[in-house]
């Protein structure tokens, strides 16, 4: 088990507020890891730091893998403060808690946007539409369509994404993120607002991504049944601090975690 993402002492301040306080986290190759915690614990902020939307105040974020799938544990790369698009190019992709699809683009186009950083037709190519550009365009369409099939949305390919039902929009976000060829996928509350049946399908989809595409996954989730059933390890944060870490059973019985969730009024 080689670590492909190592986060050390990550700290993020907003003005005087410390949203993340010295958090360590590791994801190994091929793993599904969950990041849980009560509302406002700093989970999404953690994602935003790692994916470059915020630039963390302190700490290191290191990756040691690349998009080809090869792991390079000896030469980790520090990615703090890189722009989000650079981080995506390096092989980290994400979905958003409050769905951020391109509402007025078709479902297929949403996925095709994910291929942007893996293709390189320029202005001249676009205007003259030469052979190379046409081939690339065909590759983009085919790959994207295949990804839509993987998440079961191929029949909606030409619909506008805003017209999709909620659960389908979440799956489309996953397909769009997969289109960037990541080695590590960040899912921010993928099951939020889904009914039990949809959650079950999502469970299968995540496992399929892990097994067939050999992509590691870090997810934020509130649905404990889903978290316990698919994750190999769980990190728990509360008030920006990491309060527990371990296998699902350990977490389930950890008194600190129970306290954080049930909100006992005792002092810490």
């Amino acid at each position: 088990m080689e670590p492909i993402l190592q986060v050390k002492n990550l700290t993020m301040d907003f003005g005087g507020l410390r949203a993340i306080d010295n958090v360590d986290l590791e994801v190994n190759q091929g793993e599904i890891v969950a990041l849980i915690g009560p509302n406002g614990a700093g989970k999404t902020t953690f994602f935003n730091c790692v994916t470059g939307i915020y630039s963390p105040t302190m700490g290191d974020i290191m990756i040691s893998a690349d998009t080809s799938g090869s792991v390079t544990p000896d030469t980790p790369k520090r990615i703090n403060g890189l722009k989000p698009n650079r981080i995506t190019e390096l092989g980290l992709a994400r979905t958003f808690q409050n769905i951020r699809l391109f509402a007025n683009m078709s479902v297929l186009e949403n996925v095709m946007i994910g291929r942007h950083c893996r293709s390189n037709a320029n202005i001249a190519g676009a205007v003259f539409r030469n052979k190379k550009t046409r081939n690339e365009e065909e590759e983009i369409i085919n790959t994207s369509y295949q990804l839509l099939k993987d998440v079961g949305l191929e029949q909606f390919a030409n619909e506008l994404s805003k017209n999709l039902p909620y659960g389908a929009q979440r799956r489309l976000e996953i397909a769009r993120a997969l289109a960037t060829d990541p080695f590590l996928l960040f899912l921010d509350e993928p099951a939020a607002g889904m009914n039990p049946l949809e959650t079950k399908e999502l469970d299968d989809l995540i496992k399929k991504i892990q097994l067939e595409k050999r992509i590691s996954i870090l997810l934020i989730e509130h649905d404990m049944r889903l978290v316990m059933s698919i994750s190999e390890r769980i990190y728990v944060v509360d008030y920006g601090k990491r309060i527990a870490h371990g296998a699902p059973e350990e977490i389930r019985n950890n008194p600190k975690v129970i306290k954080a969730y049930l909100g006992e009024d005792a002092d810490a």
Binding site: T51, P84, A93, R100, F102, I113, C117, I123, A126, I140
Partner: peptide
């Protein structure tokens, strides 16, 4: 083209566009 799609994506959601 690829560029035109990126423009529309930028219009629709700047943050998601960058994250992609």
């Amino acid at each position: 083209s690829r560029i035109g799609r990126a423009w529309v994506a930028l219009r629709e959601d700047e943050i998601a566009c960058q994250a992609m």
